[in-house]
Design a protein around this nucleic acid. Sequence first.
RNA 1: GCGCCCGUAGAUCAACUGGAUAGAUCGUCUGACUACGGAUCAGAAGGUUGGGAGUUCGAAUCUUCCCGGGCGCGCCA
Length: 566
Amino acid sequence: MNIFKIYKDKFILLLRNNSFDCDEEKVSVDTPRQASFGDLAFNAPLILSSSLKSNPLEIGKKIADLIKENYSEFETIEVAKPGFVNLKFKKEFWYNFLFSFDDSKGKIVNISKTINLEYVSANPTGPLHVGHCRGAVYGDILGNLLNFVGHKVIKEYYINDYGNQIHMFAKSVYARVLEIKEGKEFPVNEGLYPGEYLKEIAQSLIKKNKISNFSNYDSIKNQLGEMAMDEAMIMIKNDLLSLGIKHDLFISEKELVQNNLVSKTLKILERKNCIYEGVLPKPKGNENEDWEPREQLLFKSTKFGDDVDRALKKSDGTWTYFANDVAYHSYKLDRKFDKYINVLGADHAGYLKRLKACVDALSDFKADFECKVCQLVKLFKSGEPYKMSKRAGDFITAKELVESVGVDAVRFMMIYRSNDSQLDFDFDLVTEKTKENPVFYVQYASARIHSILRKTSLDLTNIDKQCLRLLDAEIEIEIIKKLSLWSKCMDLSAKNLEPHRIPYYLYDLASIFHSYWNLGKEYPEYRIIENENSQLIKARVYLLEKVLTVIKSGLLILGVSAPESM
RNA sequence: GCGCCCGUAGAUCAACUGGAUAGAUCGUCUGACUACGGAUCAGAAGGUUGGGAGUUCGAAUCUUCCCGGGCGCGCCA
């Protein structure tokens, strides 16, 4: 249904049949910058002029004539400087478009891919906080989007349940258990996690009563660690659920290590000659007193575009986090997806090159692997920056955020920016019920259209196509044109992994709808329901039904509700 | 010092991935309420796209050098 794609293919074929050889990559059919130029802008004259060494306007004239001879749906075909062919459809085209408009199929891509999408992967040592929300929502919506356009997405969460942090976590829970059971004061400044949530976990462990004797830490630490981890993951999954997020698969780092996947993977890299014993240079500008040269097992990531080689083994002989991650990505590759996407937070951006490097090394550059980084979220309240206390353990959790502003607002606002830009999130704004709040604005459009459907209660499944011709007003054609941009929006969003385009599109669509609605206030003939022409009512309701379909699809992808009334 | 991201209207951000006269919202100013849901709409003002140079038919977008902001920088994960 992407008319730009359709006509691009048509025009390229037409040109080739008439011995114009044009580069598919460079040629485009797009919306002209100005509506007065028409509906489609074809840039072939510009592209062809250099290879043909002739005036783009003359080439444009020839192309325009060709199109004129072969297609009858255009009202005007004009050549414009510096070298565009601008085409305007007859209204009949738009009525046909509206009549057959069907968004429910969803499938837009030609080639359906299997996609591995990893996101969130927050440390399982505490609840999700606001900082995790953006990546979580971005990843989730991206997954929905890719599914919507016809791919098969596995949403995956990598649990970092291995390494030193887990010991500290177990110790922290232990300290909380002693605090509850024996009134022993919780020690500060021992590197323990101070968060209040540990009390809940400790409480829950005591309640489950699987550990009878807490007196000797060493004898119970493994069991306690595992149980605490399970509790923490339950907590995180609940937090995710409150954000409307559900992963398909959870992969445990610990299990990867226990199954010897790390050593197996490193052998593969060894065979590829990507591993060596060496000494890393001291990083400049980082005054680390403890630094001393050390020979260790390294991965030749510089061979794959990284800035320095990366350590695989710690001085105590255990694997580094990165080594485990290499194994994890090897495991991903083993499962053979057409595409792999990692969503990372801004604080992990420095990690990106080595990940790409290890995937390139393991797959011999064959894997389609892409990392998307979400920049930080700055919190605001009443227009003032909202500072979280530096005191450890004091942060706003995802759950609290959802409870105070609602899941719809969190999801919409977290995605309402390009992921490359930092994001300002205002607590007050998102709960406002005004135009200033884009979530509300779009949802309000949904409610208004539902209201019309309720009042008219027409069955339009067998509507006469002819009756759509009554939609003669400029704004009605404009709405149909906006609908035609929906699949283009999907295409672009999915192709570039930029779901932020969706809320922008929905806002625009809602905006035109609200204008249309208000037109009836000044000019009674524009009233949708209070109209004497029953055929016109049908046609208009049909149009609004399609608008609602798109709003619903869009909000569904965003995981935001499309209310019937508000 | 190095790497990644950002810099667009007073503020917050878009801009179909190199296209034509750079668009929204808020704020400011002017209008429309006995309402098919005014929680809305119509209109106005507001720009040397941080700065310089380069690439070409054409640059907010690509290259390069400055300036400013954010994140990160051998065995934490």
